[in-house]
Deep mutational scan, measured.
Amino acid sequence: MMAYMNPGPHYSVNALALSGPSVDLMHQAVPYPSAPRKQRRERTTFTRSQLEELEALFAKTQYPDVYAREEVALKINLPESRVQVWFKNRRAKCRQQRQQQKQQQQPPGGQAKARPAKRKAGTSPRPSTDVCPDPLGISDSYSPPLPGPSGSPTTAVATVSIWSPASESPLPEAQRAGLVASGPSLTSAPYAMTYAPASAFCSSPSAYGSPSSYFSGLDPYLSPMVPQLGGPALSPLSGPSVGPSLAQSPTSLSGQSYGAYSPVDSLEFKDPTGTWKFTYNPMDPLDYKDQSAWKFQIL
């Protein structure tokens, strides 16, 4: 009977010793046993002879290597770790002494450095960015050149030099007046198309007034536009458009034309069986010896 009264063996659950049927240790109110408190290391007290050895090595170098620390530790009968900690504390003490010396050398008012006064946003004049500046400075420094007289040679050079070769001289006033084509001369031969040399188009003023001019072949195509416009036809070669000034309004060009419109200028042929003959000019830059190549039959 006494065997049943004795408590059973101890069981360990999660490293906790349980005594038989008792489960009081598993209750929430019972805390787990805490780790033992780490003991504080005792402070090391250095003797005068030990301090002399350490100070002598510190005077040589503030960062001794492990071999120098072990050698000193053997002399003063201390572990190497204590020597390492002593050098660490000695360097910190040396830095603190240097900072105190710097503070003593500075004057009393030198510690508080005078800061520059901050400028207020409204006091300083700042350039306004509302208006974009002129990058080319046209509004201040540029002045347009004065327009020359209508009959000045410089204007003629600016007008005619675009179309004339570089080897030719500017046309005088008398020749510029001949550039304007007359109405009857352009409409006299509506079906004849003559190819003149390129030099005649640039230099010869008579080429624009003769039936064999460069633009005589364009007349049949330009004249039928007159009834559609409801007024006189516009002429690209009329009046002052080739003269001194090219800047004319469309209203000033509306009254200039080749001449009176005639039914002869239409595109319809009077004789459907007729042929169109292209007159060959020996001055043509295209060297075609066979003139029969310039004739064709309209079917």
Rank of each mutant, 00 (worst) to 15 (best):
P9T: 08
H10C: 10
H10F: 11
Y11E: 00
S12W: 12
V13D: 00
A15E: 00
A17M: 15
L18A: 00
L18F: 12
G20P: 05
P21M: 13
P21T: 10
D24P: 15
D24F: 14
L25K: 05
H27Y: 13
H27Q: 02
Q28P: 06
Q28S: 05
A29S: 07
P33W: 12
S34D: 04
A35E: 07
R37V: 10
R37W: 13
R37N: 08
R37L: 04
R37C: 04
K38V: 11
Q39W: 15
R40I: 12
T44F: 12
T45E: 11
T45N: 09
F46L: 13
F46E: 15
T47R: 03
S49K: 06
E52I: 08
E55R: 11
F58W: 06
A59P: 12
T61I: 03
Q62H: 06
Y63C: 15
P64A: 13
P64E: 14
Y67V: 07
R69P: 15
E71L: 10
V72S: 15
P79R: 07
E80V: 06
S81D: 01
R82M: 12
V83G: 13
V83Y: 15
V85L: 15
W86M: 12
W86Q: 15
F87M: 05
F87K: 12
K88W: 13
N89T: 08
R90H: 10
R91W: 14
R91L: 15
A92V: 13
A92I: 15
K93I: 13
C94D: 04
C94S: 12
C94A: 09
C94G: 06
Q96Y: 06
Q96W: 04
Q97K: 06
R98V: 06
Q100M: 06
Q100A: 08
Q101K: 12
Q105I: 03
P108F: 03
G109K: 10
G109I: 04
Q111Y: 09
A114E: 04
A114G: 02
K118S: 01
K120D: 01
A121G: 05
G122N: 09
P125G: 09
R126G: 02
S128M: 07
S128T: 07
S128N: 06
T129P: 04
D130K: 11
V131G: 07
C132K: 12
P135M: 05
L136N: 03
G137C: 04
G137I: 11
I138N: 06
I138V: 08
D140Y: 03
D140E: 06
S141K: 05
Y142E: 10
Y142R: 11
Y142G: 07
S143I: 02
P144L: 08
L146G: 06
L146S: 10
L146F: 07
G148Q: 04
P149M: 07
S150P: 04
S152D: 02
A156M: 13
V157E: 01
V157F: 07
V160Y: 03
I162A: 00
I162H: 00
W163V: 03
P165T: 03
P165G: 01
A166Q: 00
P170S: 10
A174L: 10
G178E: 03
G178D: 02
S182K: 10
T187K: 08
T187L: 10
S188E: 06
S188R: 14
S188D: 02
Y191S: 00
A192Y: 12
M193W: 09
T194S: 03
Y195V: 07
P197D: 04
S199E: 03
F201W: 09
C202M: 07
C202A: 04
S204M: 12
S204E: 01
P205H: 07
S206V: 07
S206Q: 08
A207K: 08
A207T: 10
Y208D: 01
G209M: 12
G209L: 14
S210F: 11
S210T: 07
P211S: 03
S213Y: 11
F215C: 01
S216R: 07
S216M: 10
L218R: 02
L218K: 06
S223A: 06
P224Y: 12
L229A: 02
P232T: 05
S235N: 02
P236F: 11
P236T: 08
S238P: 01
G239N: 07
G239S: 04
P240I: 12
P240L: 12
P240G: 01
S241P: 05
S241Q: 03
V242R: 10
V242D: 02
P244F: 14
P244V: 10
S245K: 07
L246P: 04
L246I: 04
A247G: 03
A247P: 04
Q248E: 05
T251P: 05
T251R: 09
S254W: 14
G255W: 14
G255K: 10
Q256S: 07
Y258S: 06
S262W: 07
S262N: 02
P263E: 03
V264E: 01
D265P: 12
E268P: 04
E268K: 10
F269W: 04
K270I: 12
D271S: 11
P272V: 10
P272K: 09
T273L: 08
G274W: 09
Y280E: 00
N281W: 15
N281P: 03
M283V: 04
M283D: 03
D284V: 14
P285Y: 09
P285A: 10
D287R: 14
K289V: 04
A293I: 13
A293T: 09
A293V: 13
A293S: 09
W294S: 00
F296S: 00
Q297T: 12
Q297D: 00
Q297C: 15
I298M: 00
L299P: 00
L299W: 06
